[in-house]
Amino acid sequence: MLDPVTLPELAQILGFLGNEQRLNILRAIIQNEKFAREISEEVGISRPLVNIYLKQLEKAGLVTGTNRVAEEPPYLRRYYRAMPFELVVNLDVLTKTGDV
């Protein structure tokens, strides 16, 4: 579960997840893991941008990546899968988050 402790952390998480392209990437890898080119073709975003977003999502713990050897080029591919998470935002969360 994403658990922001401060208002800036909450704002950062909401801003990060508020990006439609990132959400489309997450949606593309919920059921089946895919590598960047497959995701790029499915969501209509350039491969370099997909790679940037995947690294950000992986760093945030929302995506996990696994390297695999393929039978055709590119021989080394990194497959990504969305990780389960829950984010609850309500007035209680706003009350609990401090400015620390």
Rank of each mutant, 00 (worst) to 15 (best):
M1F: 04
L2D: 04
D3A: 12
D3K: 13
P4D: 05
P4E: 03
P4K: 08
V5A: 14
T6L: 07
P8D: 07
E9N: 08
L10A: 10
L10E: 02
Q12W: 14
Q12T: 14
L14D: 06
L14C: 13
G15F: 02
G15V: 02
G15Y: 01
F16I: 01
F16H: 05
L17R: 07
G18C: 11
G18I: 10
E20I: 13
Q21C: 01
Q21G: 00
R22D: 09
R22M: 09
L23I: 15
N24S: 10
I25M: 04
I25N: 03
L26F: 10
L26W: 10
R27S: 08
R27M: 01
A28C: 08
A28R: 02
Q31D: 13
N32A: 06
N32E: 12
E33N: 13
E33Q: 14
A36G: 03
A36D: 09
R37D: 09
R37P: 00
E38A: 15
E38F: 01
E38C: 06
E38M: 13
E41M: 09
E41K: 12
E42N: 00
E42Y: 03
V43E: 08
V43T: 08
V43R: 06
I45W: 00
S46Q: 14
P48W: 05
I52N: 14
I52V: 15
I52H: 11
Y53R: 15
Y53M: 14
L54D: 09
L54S: 07
K55V: 00
Q56T: 06
Q56I: 01
Q56P: 04
E58Q: 14
K59P: 00
K59G: 11
A60T: 01
A60D: 03
G61L: 06
G61T: 06
L62I: 07
L62P: 05
L62Q: 04
L62C: 05
L62M: 05
L62V: 08
V63F: 04
T64S: 12
T64K: 15
G65V: 05
R68H: 13
R68G: 00
V69C: 02
V69N: 11
A70T: 05
A70Q: 08
P73M: 03
P73K: 11
P73N: 01
P74T: 06
L76T: 14
L76S: 14
R77G: 08
R78S: 04
R78Q: 12
Y79R: 03
Y79W: 10
Y79V: 03
R81K: 15
M83L: 15
M83Y: 02
M83S: 11
P84G: 12
E86V: 09
E86M: 07
V89L: 10
V89K: 05
V89G: 03
V89C: 05
N90R: 07
N90K: 05
D92L: 07
V93N: 02
L94F: 13
T95C: 01
T95W: 09
T95F: 10
T95N: 08
K96L: 13
T97M: 12
D99K: 14
V100Y: 05
